[in-house]
Simulated assay, not measured.
Amino acid sequence: MATLTIDTLGGDKQFSAYRADPAAPPRAAVIVIQEIFGVNAGIRAKCDRLAEQGYLAIAPDLFWRIEPGIDLNPDVPEEMERALDLMGRFDQNLAIADIEATIRAARAAVPGGKVGAIGFCLGGRLAYMTAARTDVDASVGYYPVGIDGLLGEKHAIARPLMLHIAGADGFVPAEVQAAMHAGLDDHPRVTLHDYPGEDHGFATELGKRRSDAAARLADSRTDAFLASTLA
């Protein structure tokens, strides 16, 4: 496991990313898009799991423009408050530019150049935006927030996108989930999966939020999705 330095699209600045390499030449690359807690232990564990499956996994530090190296624990109330403050100062459009720069770096690092993206919470929203605004080959969003406000971009989704929706998500109320289904169920490149009774963060690798059975189901669907779309 190592740190990767990535040039911004403008080439005038650099930011860091956590990198997990597979034991053999990678089958493809996967960008892991952070929650509001930075590239913390849970996100690094997601990368490590993907590397075990044969992918080059890269988690860019998307908070670097505010403060580099953010690593917060959502189970600690004070750190949760800090994460919410960071979210309030976060520029999502600049984050998409940084994700695009990461995609370019990842394409150059793997045979065949196939790159997917997986995001969680804020990262789930950014995964949707990545699907609509970049040339990523496939995207997955876990419990993405605020997708109802992004449905106007759905026409630009040209590659496969999978979204995992927590049925009892405290950050995504029932009416937003209904809007997601109404807007996306008939999209030929989008697949939605619902997890009734599950709350936001159910598929985290670490901590109190994890709901193991639902997490395993969602991850198995993601694994199959990536295997088919990044082949």
Rank of each mutant, 00 (worst) to 15 (best):
I103K: 01
Y195H: 11
I36Y: 06
M129G: 06
Q177R: 14
D75R: 02
T222L: 06
F63C: 00
Y143W: 10
D212F: 13
D223Y: 11
R133H: 00
N93L: 11
L4W: 10
A97H: 10
A158K: 15
G11V: 06
I66K: 04
T191V: 14
M87C: 13
V136T: 02
R216W: 03
T222C: 12
F37N: 06
V110D: 08
D194Q: 09
A45S: 10
E35G: 03
D71N: 09
V136Y: 05
T102P: 05
L4C: 14
M1I: 01
E205K: 01
I99K: 01
I96H: 01
I33N: 01
K208A: 07
V190N: 08
A20Y: 07
D185W: 10
P22Y: 05
A101K: 09
P160C: 11
G42V: 01
I43A: 00
A23C: 09
G112P: 14
G119R: 00
A23L: 09
T3F: 09
H200L: 14
A131N: 10
R133W: 04
N73A: 11
G10Y: 08
M129R: 02
E79I: 01
A215Q: 10
A215F: 05
R49M: 14
I103A: 01
T222G: 13
E52P: 11
L4V: 12
V39L: 01
H193P: 05
R125T: 10
A224L: 14
T3P: 07
A132C: 06
D12M: 12
Y143L: 02
G197R: 14
